[in-house]
Design a protein around this nucleic acid. Structure first.
Lengths: 156, 156
DNA sequence: TTGACTCCCATAATTACCCATGATATCCCA
DNA sequence: TGGGATATCATGGGTAATTATGGGAGTCAA
């Protein structure tokens, strides 16, 4: 399974391209399809991303489960769960690498994250996020402060 | 397995033709039949669609299950389940691609979805939907708001 | 003949592919 | 342990291919 760690800040050129950090590409290296899946975070002004393989597993498993169970409802009409997967599929984009390991961020996602000419890649383990650098800086400060307070409060 | 993600808004010309997004056509690429299966959604004002291969799997799997269960009633006379699959089969149309990857939406389906001169293709994983753009926009807003509320509520 | 549909061609915009560059990091060998 | 040679990476831009879209001519059936 691909795992993403560390953060990188890269440039978005005027064609809308960004280099995906080499370390992330290496993590995806075993997958046949060279590219990433991206969709807007539902809770934060950021873009969520992971490999194509992860998505395929998700879709395949859902399909098999519904058919093996004899439940054709989900396959034909959807709606057998709370709609989370269905919605994410609609919001997702497949972003293929160019020869240099770059992707083009769709306008919709760029706007959602408030990205202009720079983008911060944030490793989150099985997936990663893409933020506008200044937004991420603030977000991270809050995140760390909250954690620190909780740990100190618990200890002292 | 063909997988459909992301959303695309395309024009319906005055001959009733719409381009199926290239990404969807690529997802169907391995299949022998060049075209899609479409039927009206039973729960929403939208058209449901997928590839011929998915339909075949669905039918095959249903056949196998009925034989394994020793239930020949369904195989011979149909109607052994709630009628969902039978009904969908009847409502379905085979829509072949023209040379440019376009399909013609049957009048019945166009009316059901309220489509006029534009159509939004919505990826749902193993299948996709076709909506009237404004109707989908409203639908998606509700869908996302519900998810967001649930995610925030669960976290806090 | 009229209409509906299929096949074919044209076009503008977008996207993918190719090569080039500077900077950084890595390697290798004395 | 230096320090030059070599990869690798992020970045930039030009060109070719693809996509979505439009319309015309030909075909079949009523």
């Amino acid at each position: 399974m691909a795992s993403f760690i560390s953060t990188y800040e890269n440039k978005v050129d005027r064609k809308g391209r960004v280099s995906v950090p080499a370390a992330y590409r290496a993590a995806l290296g075993t997958e046949t399809y060279q590219g990433v899946i991206a969709y807007p975070s539902l809770t934060e002004p950021a873009i969520e991303g992971f490999g194509r393989g992860t998505l395929d597993q998700l879709i395949q498993r859902r399909f098999d489960q519904s058919l093996d169970g004899g439940d054709f409802t989900q396959t034909l009409v959807g709606k057998s769960d709370d709609g989370l997967v269905e919605t994410i599929m609609a919001l997702s984009s497949e972003l293929p690498f160019d020869g240099e390991g770059r992707i083009i961020l769709p306008a919709r996602l760029v706007e959602h994250a408030g990205i202009t000419d720079r983008a911060t890649f944030v490793g989150r383990g099985t997936r990663f996020q893409i933020w506008a650098p200044d937004a991420y800086e603030k977000h991270q400060a809050v995140e760390v402060a909250a954690l620190r307070a909780r740990l100190n409060g618990g200890a002292a």
